[in-house]
Design a protein around this nucleic acid. Sequence first.
DNA 1: TATTTTTTTTAGACTTGTCTAAATTAATTC
DNA 2: GAATTAATTTAGACAAGTCTAAAAAAAATA
Lengths: 216, 216
Amino acid sequence: MHSFTEENYLKAIFHLLLKTQSATTNEIAAATGTKAASVTDMLKKLAEKKLINYARYQGVTLTDSGERIAVGIVRKHRLWEHFLVDKLKFKWDEVHEMAEELEHISSTELINRLDEFMGHPQFDPHGDPIPDCNGRISNQHLQSALHLKKDQTGKIAAVADHSPAFLQYLEKTQLTIGQTITVTGLTDYDMALVLNNSQNEFNISREVAKNLLILV
Amino acid sequence: MHSFTEENYLKAIFHLLLKTQSATTNEIAAATGTKAASVTDMLKKLAEKKLINYARYQGVTLTDSGERIAVGIVRKHRLWEHFLVDKLKFKWDEVHEMAEELEHISSTELINRLDEFMGHPQFDPHGDPIPDCNGRISNQHLQSALHLKKDQTGKIAAVADHSPAFLQYLEKTQLTIGQTITVTGLTDYDMALVLNNSQNEFNISREVAKNLLILV
DNA sequence: TATTTTTTTTAGACTTGTCTAAATTAATTC
DNA sequence: GAATTAATTTAGACAAGTCTAAAAAAAATA
Ligand SMILES: [Mn+2]
Ligand SMILES: [Mn+2]
Ligand SMILES: [Mn+2]
Ligand SMILES: [Mn+2]
């Protein structure tokens, strides 16, 4: 059908378009770990196949069929991550690289059965929504913990940084998905957030807070 | 590590070596769906990497490290097939193509956890033995149903033809793995085998019998 | 507006794996 | 043993995806 490479470009463009109107050559190069010249070649090919809208120097958007493919890859990625954590007992910081391979297994019947086997999970281990078999993605309006007001309470719902280092840090400090937290103040020294999670009180840096996504 | 292509060549050579002393260029071409000229190129590359023993015009064998890789692929293939049938409820004639993709997922930790998740199954859905995590393969001495003597009883343990058509035929006639059968005779007309499976009596052609592997 | 900097594209080359056609070697047959 | 046939290898080409270096376009700055 489509090569792994094409799928990876479409997925990268999809993720970039969640943040901006159109994805640029350099952004795509950074996201795919390639050089700008290679990206230009691939953009021509994807445009030829009507998977992206591309005009020289203008950046790109996905066509409907390009987006359908990209969402399909994201669905597979997140369902496989859920499988690895929920069934095979991997930790949430261990599954991304494996999912990067598994997301290219072509059978949609397989992924739909996997979805059913796990009881149609709504979110992956990092709190990201799993598109349904029609490509629909639920949208929770989350906000960064950094923007919580004093004494505001919310539930940790997702993370904005997926690096193993960050995920391991959260695991160690019990800041895992589903935890309810309250912001009780800021430290004078570095404006770190003082949090309360019903048992203990502790501080998190503004950088950590930025990457914690909260459902209020 | 190794490309999908290299893995597929090693796997093909491994399967060929179960039947003969050394695998020939044409056999490998047939098994991999390529042309002889392409095989020669790849054999040079695999020999360069010390994964096969190759001398021009002589056919090839696997080195220890080549065999280790090949057995690893076979282990993955068969474990994934077991997963698809046992957990995702696919039929035994539906899983081969998916396993052809899944066998190239690189993580050995993943496959070991999958193995554990399924309770360390000994055989895949077609009765083929699943190598353990050290590459050891159990060897049952099976014989073709064609060579059963009159009134001899045995258990269907594996199939020699993995084509969906054959597997569907067996499913329909209840000749599935684990069934105990007795050969009660031969028809006069075409020497078909007359079988008894405790409930019914019925005939199977010599071609079908050839591909049914029996544990006596 | 003219100049400098950044971004993007083009040109040309390389790698992997494939092919067809031709040449070579090995195996069969007469 | 010579001639024919079959198997294998070599030669040369191609497609996909990548790269570096250079050119062109766009954006930023003076
Ligand atoms: Mn991931
Ligand atoms: Mn994830
Ligand atoms: Mn199979
Ligand atoms: Mn099998």
